[in-house]
Design a protein around this nucleic acid. Structure first.
Lengths: 188, 188
DNA sequence: GTCTATACCTTGATAGAC
DNA sequence: GTCTATCAAGGTATAGAC
């Protein structure tokens, strides 16, 4: 049985590794060995590790754009739930988000990567800000500050929520989600 | 002029490096070169990198215990401010906190390190929980959930706040602090 | 598109002189 | 306590055959 798309497999595994150990903690050997190909095959698809890292971020940008389109017709509360869902963790999957992974290693990464990552972060923050602003206007979400600020609060809750879950357990994360909703005046 | 305490200098620099690039992004060579000593000198004080990482975390535990003692006589709001202050960033200092740094690289670190880190995280979380519980009882802080949950919310705001500031700018962080206080019913 | 083979550098770590 | 010297292992990356 032939490999369908080695390039895509490498890309998916690289993202998984970045989000579980960090960019500087995995090697081309780990990727090639896991996928059952050779080191050189990985270099064929992604000539340098920086290119691989960049493509991981670019594909995440595309994925977020798809997410926006796919959820655009949902209610605002459903959109918020769908967004929270993208962070969700269970015992087999406790990857942190890219924003957290890249920002923690920030000064150990190629500048190209951090620059592209800034774009993704803005994209996410703008979308959440807009969602909250609309929700507040509709009387769906309640909060007493700029929607930009509330967006930062929710994004940081989620980003560090998946991180701290590794140190304190997954219940801490599910508990946190309830707190976010309570502070938005949901959970009534 | 003799070096006063090489061991302490190594320890401080190692923490700085972990919090700016991550544990797997710095080397013994970077430490020795920066401090103007040789590789072997670093190994004399910290025989393995794992021991060095462990000592960084242990010294952070001691520092937090000192912080508790030093702030114990302050008002609850002053204690909260002092805690927030430990995360504070400016243009020369935008190190992330140890909780974030260690949790992001979690699966790329020696288990010994992550285990000791769990202790520090509990220590911090318990202290914040207690602070919030007392503050609520006193009518100083207002929130509609378990103090444990609110503690997780504030800690994740701060931990990811310093991270996201690297991608969005420091104003995002100062704005976030205002949001935290607003949600606690302060900032009136 | 994947392989073998290899080059070259950096890494963490050790032995032994001073 | 710091040095010189050195090591084995692992890292990214490339050349060229299939």
């Amino acid at each position: 049985m032939a490999r369908l798309d080695t390039r895509q497999q490498i890309l998916d595994l690289a993202e998984e590794l970045i989000r579980s150990k960090g960019y500087n903690s995995f090697s081309y050997h780990e990727i090639s060995h896991t996928l059952g190909v050779k080191n050189a095959a990985v270099h064929y698809h992604f000539p340098t590790k920086e290119v691989l890292g960049l493509e991981v971020i670019r594909s995440a940008i595309q994925r977020f754009k798809d997410f926006k389109e796919e959820t655009a017709s949902l209610s605002l509360e459903e959109q918020l739930d769908a967004f929270i869902q993208t962070y969700s963790i269970n015992s087999e999957n406790d990857k942190v988000c890219l924003v957290g992974a890249i920002s923690v290693e920030f000064y150990g990464l190629p500048e190209n990567m951090t620059n592209v990552m800034k774009g993704l972060t803005r994209l996410i923050h703008d979308w959440v800000t807009n969602l909250l602003a609309m929700g507040k206007a509709e009387g769906m979400f309640a909060f007493d500050m700029k929607p930009e600020t509330k967006a930062t609060m929710i994004i940081t809750n989620l980003a560090a929520g998946v991180q701290i879950a590794r140190l304190m357990g997954n219940e801490t994360f599910s508990d946190l989600i309830k707190g976010i909703k309570t502070d938005l005046g949901l959970n009534k």
